[in-house]
Design a binder for these strands. Sequence first.
DNA 1: TGTACATCAGTGAACGCGCGTTCACTGATGTAC
DNA 2: TGTACATCAGTGAACGCGCGTTCACTGATGTAC
Lengths: 213, 213
Amino acid sequence: MNSSTRATLGVRQAQKLKTRQALLDAALKLLEEQSLSSLGLREVTRVVGVAPAAFYRHFRDMAELGVALVEESLGSLHVMIRAVLAEQQEAEEVIDRSVEAVADHVRRHPAHVRFVARERHGGVRAVREAIAAELARFGDEVAAALAAQEVSRGWSAEDVRMLAGLYVDHLVMTASAFVEASAEEPEEERVIADTARRQLRLISLGRRHWRAA
Amino acid sequence: MNSSTRATLGVRQAQKLKTRQALLDAALKLLEEQSLSSLGLREVTRVVGVAPAAFYRHFRDMAELGVALVEESLGSLHVMIRAVLAEQQEAEEVIDRSVEAVADHVRRHPAHVRFVARERHGGVRAVREAIAAELARFGDEVAAALAAQEVSRGWSAEDVRMLAGLYVDHLVMTASAFVEASAEEPEEERVIADTARRQLRLISLGRRHWRAA
DNA sequence: TGTACATCAGTGAACGCGCGTTCACTGATGTAC
DNA sequence: TGTACATCAGTGAACGCGCGTTCACTGATGTAC
């Protein structure tokens, strides 16, 4: 905790936040090897080094912790997406930068990416819904950026949103592929990046030849 | 059990297969609401109505049952994919038929589709690997079919495989979307089908304009 | 066909274990004056 | 600044419960003659 946080929140609240974060970190780490619906409250508190009952000072149950993890995981991804969208460059260059940004993001936050991939269709409804809602927001944001581009002149809003969905799905897919490969040979990472780039190039080509209906 | 099965296997083996199938069916049903890594052996045997220890006559553990479910789930999908690939028609028509086939498959086997979507990135390694291997086979098969088409003249094998991967990923994505929507309003199903068709149309357009490198 | 023995799918009781949740508590931090 | 009281994050013991796994068993089915 830095001094400004302490000054704003007081020692007690700062300590509480610290414990909360430790619970989130411990859970995220444990979730590399299992899924949320099988993660135990006691497992998490044991790693953190607090009594099991302390968990309830921060979360009602594991589902609530999961939703907090979704916010944390997709928050950082959101930042990355915004950065890529902000750049205005040649299509080819945007593709290269995007794939590199995704690869980099996965390298920096492998556990977050794995968590989202795993729980996107996982066994905890509240978490699935939180992920779906956040990915839908990404889609809207990408759609807004696409609509502003010259290539989209004459496109219907639905078509732009459809394309944005394709990009977001592709992003999640690529990130999942990276995170699952990372444990194996580094060569595989290059293959995934290369495939992702070619797929994006093909989509970009389809985009340019789309007949505005 | 029909008479030919009984004649081939004998009463005892036929009964054993029946129990095994009952275990698979019960597990699949329970997995609509949870994930494999949290599914208990006792839960499954309780639904079937056999003693917990009977489970071990059929599977070493839940992971092994999960792998059997992967075979069952992707086997039927495999049949569907083959049927679609076998048809030789106009691109537009192939798209419509494919999306309808996927929608139909999800309507017929919702639990299988949900299972694959959930466990594709789930917490059980053996099951993830079984799904990945089977989807890779689908990709190869789709690639072979694409390569045989006129449009692919001059394409490298890698590019064809890249496109096949895009199709398989899109199929899984669309199936997941259908199965998650089904519980809600039927209108949503139409929207998903419509989006899927337009995305496939855009990809098809990109394919036609791909410069053979 | 009938008999004697072998196989083996499923039983039911037992086990030790870790789980989620509750509760009254403690003691450091916060607040009012 | 100092004191008296309030707050509340974290404790530790206790609970009942369902879990996975083991084991010797039973009795229907299969096999050999």
